[in-house]
């Protein structure tokens, strides 16, 4: 399977999306260029639950016992400093009404600067870094703010098709006040030349929605002699009940 073929399939699906004219925010579950989606998406439409008593309109809570102070600094989890470009990533977690999501759990995981995960099944022949695990957690503050110190992850190859490479990304997992606001996504870096080739990035059919996955470089967040800064705000989707109530 060539990149040319995958790119043509992506272009066709993006064009079909524009023709349909219905705005979709999330990754398409049925997205043929992402090969492993084929057998893992439902054929039946989702069933709408319209019940003000639904358990999913509430959700799990987390607190100070669920994180430690060191969890948010991925460069301090080992004896030495990890290799790579040190970065801070920060932003706010909001609901669709723009209200901060307070005191909720944010989890991240990522490849090291060479594009290798500390995972048994990652056999990309790039070096592991004894000073980098690539896992972090924090709770949002009263303004919905999160912050991590880490290193910029490398791009890495995968076997979706010949010469498939993922753009550099950090995986994010987020909770809102309702279980139905749950989000797992990926943060990308501005200007990555791999965007047009990647079926996972492009499984989000809407061009403007794809842009919302890309962090902004923010020079004011850069720490002199220490790290470069990126800002990325995250907006949790969810039932209208979760953003209409005052």
């Amino acid at each position: 399977m060539t990149q040319e073929r995958i790119s043509a399939e992506i272009a066709d699906l993006h064009e079909a999306y524009l023709k349909e004219g219905v705005e979709r925010h999330h990754a398409a579950r049925d997205f043929a260029p992402y090969r492993s989606s084929a057998l893992r998406h439902p054929h039946q439409p989702l069933v709408v639950v319209d019940d003000p008593e639904a358990a999913e309109l509430t959700g799990p809570v987390f607190g100070v016992t669920d994180v430690t102070a060191l969890d948010a600094d991925l460069t301090r989890q080992h004896q030495g400093q990890p290799l790579g470009e040190r970065i801070t990533v920060t932003g706010r977690v909001l609901d669709r009404a723009g209200r901060p999501v307070r005191g909720q759990l944010v989890e991240v995981w990522q490849a090291n600067a060479s594009g290798r995960y500390l995972h048994q099944r990652d056999d990309h022949p790039a070096p592991l870094d004894p000073n980098f695990t690539g896992v972090g957690r924090c709770l949002t503050d009263d303004e919905g703010r999160y912050a991590f110190t880490t290193v910029r992850p490398g791009a890495y190859p995968w076997r979706n098709h010949r010469n498939a490479w993922r753009p550099a990304h950090i995986h994010f997992s987020l909770f809102g006040t309702a279980f139905a606001q749950r989000l797992i996504t990926q943060m990308y870096f501005p200007g990555d030349p791999l965007f047009p080739y990647d079926p996972i990035f492009n499984s989000v059919l809407d061009e403007r929605a794809r842009q919302r996955m890309i962090a902004a470089y923010d020079h004011d967040l850069s720490v002199p002699e220490w790290s470069l800064g990126y800002r990325w705000d995250i907006v949790l989707d969810g039932p209208s009940a979760t953003w209409m109530e005052s």
């Binding site: 669709r96 009404a97 997992s173 990035f201």
Partner: peptide
């Protein structure tokens, strides 16, 4: 009402981060 951040797959390598 602001537009949401899109979802992306959890991928294959969440195993040392989420469970």
């Amino acid at each position: 009402m602001i537009k949401p951040t899109p979802s992306q797959t959890v991928g294959p390598f969440y195993g040392y981060a989420l469970p």
